[in-house]
């Protein structure tokens, strides 16, 4: 069985909690790692490939994730433009191993073909990964990545969706979020500082 979550500690802790509830005894290791688990749902990229979100997209990589949808007439064009600009800067400064990922917040409508068109129109290079999938599972991925608002009304409105960019370095289990509304140069500095520092 492939684990749907990445955080072994959290698995152990939760599993043992369940065991304890069932009257079992056990001990586990604590690592002091992040209180965070990422779903491993099957998602679809712009080429129609089926990928496991954690195993195939995140695991072992330094990643830059944004949320968008192809029909967005709000912040997406500007935020995507900033990120494309940041990507170009990163490529020129040793960031070729960085994996840039855009996740559709309108997966019910955004097909792989839509994502391919969006990629081309936005000036994304061929290495960029765009993802769609089952709406409920994409929603879970969004929330797990922290691109959510504590106000349930704001959180439910796609037009007010997060402009945050999630930075992750899975090898070091290191995560942060910055603003996709900042200029590409500022975004690139954060990306390079965090993701290629080691």
């Amino acid at each position: 069985m492939s684990l749907p979550n990445k955080n072994v500690f959290f698995y152990l802790a939760a599993t043992l909690s369940l065991l304890a509830l069932n009257g079992c005894n056990g001990g586990h290791l604590a690592t002091g790692k992040n209180l965070r688990s990422l779903p491993n749902y099957v998602v679809t990229d712009q080429h129609g490939n089926k990928l496991r979100f954690y195993d195939d997209v995140i695991a072992g990589h330094a990643v830059v994730l944004q949320f968008m949808y192809t029909r967005c007439d709000g912040i997406c064009p500007a935020a995507t433009g900033n990120l494309v600009s940041a990507r170009r800067i990163c490529l020129g400064q040793g960031g070729s191993d960085l994996r840039f990922i855009s996740i559709s917040l309108d997966p019910a409508r955004d097909t792989p073909e839509d994502l391919t068109d969006y990629s081309r129109i936005s000036g994304m290079d061929n290495e960029w990964i765009l993802l769609t999938g089952k709406p409920a599972e994409i929603e879970e991925i969004r929330k797990a990545l922290g691109a959510k608002d504590p106000d349930p009304v704001l959180d439910s409105q796609r037009s007010s969706h997060s402009a945050g960019i999630v930075l992750g370095n899975d090898k070091y289990d290191r995560w942060a979020m910055i603003s996709g509304l900042s200029p590409g140069s500022a975004i690139a500095r954060s990306i390079l500082r965090i993701l290629t520092a080691i």
Partner: peptide, 15 residues
């Protein structure tokens, strides 16, 4: 704005 912070409408750039 859209889940991120802005100051005077602008997102940060320390340069």
């Amino acid at each position: 704005r859209n889940g991120v912070w802005v100051i005077n409408g602008e997102s940060v750039d320390l340069h």
